[in-house]
């Protein structure tokens, strides 16, 4: 068996993670979620906690490239994983196309759900299963927006998706 801890573990278990390209060796108790690890000890508060129960999508990050609710993942179970959070997608000076599109389309009001929406949209684009606005809406349904910015969120994602398609066609043609 790989690893054991006892219940009174005061020291935690060793976990190594690559977060936004940087390597982190941390020690965590087995009951700590990835979300709490990010926002607490690692002080990366871009990822938000809405419900803490998989019901809102605010905590969505990319784990090994796939969008996942970080509130339901025990950090210890992710030893060796590569994680991308909103902080790693782009910076204010060098925004990810989705970040730019969200600004252009005013795809938020309070902004609390936005990091989760953008990480989720990044996962959606990579998955490649959305081909229409209807499919974007269905496949973004794991991200709730209490402010109801859904129309603009769908617009922003649709824009980036179309730009990517145009880019891909151009590349294919060249």
């Amino acid at each position: 068996m790989d690893l054991l801890s006892n219940r009174s573990s005061a020291s935690g278990l060793p976990v190594s993670l690559t977060i936004n390209g940087a390597h982190h060796d941390v020690s965590v108790d087995p009951w700590v979620t990835l979300l709490d690890l990010l926002r607490g000890p690692l002080s990366m508060t871009g990822t938000k906690k809405g419900c803490d129960h998989g019901q809102c999508g605010a905590c969505t990050v990319l784990i090994d490239g796939e969008r996942i609710n970080s509130c339901l993942k025990l950090a210890v179970s992710l030893d060796g994983a590569e994680i991308t959070t909103i902080e790693g997608l782009g910076t204010p000076d060098n925004m990810h196309p989705l970040q730019k599109a969200f600004v252009e389309h005013d795809a938020y009001q309070c902004g609390y759900c936005t990091p989760g929406q953008i990480c989720s949209a990044a996962g959606l684009l990579k998955e490649g299963h959305a081909h229409s606005r209807e499919e974007i809406r269905e496949l973004m349904s794991g991200n709730l927006c209490r402010c109801g910015a859904y129309t603009n969120i769908a617009d922003a994602i649709e824009d980036v998706m179309q730009a990517e398609n145009v880019g891909a066609h151009r590349e294919a043609a060249e």
Partner: peptide
């Protein structure tokens, strides 16, 4: 969450034995 022991078996027989 209540504290618990964490085990990470690497094959099915280890997992079954632990469970």
């Amino acid at each position: 969450m209540k504290p618990f022991e964490y085990l990470r078996p690497s094959d099915v027989s280890e997992a079954v034995a632990a469970l």
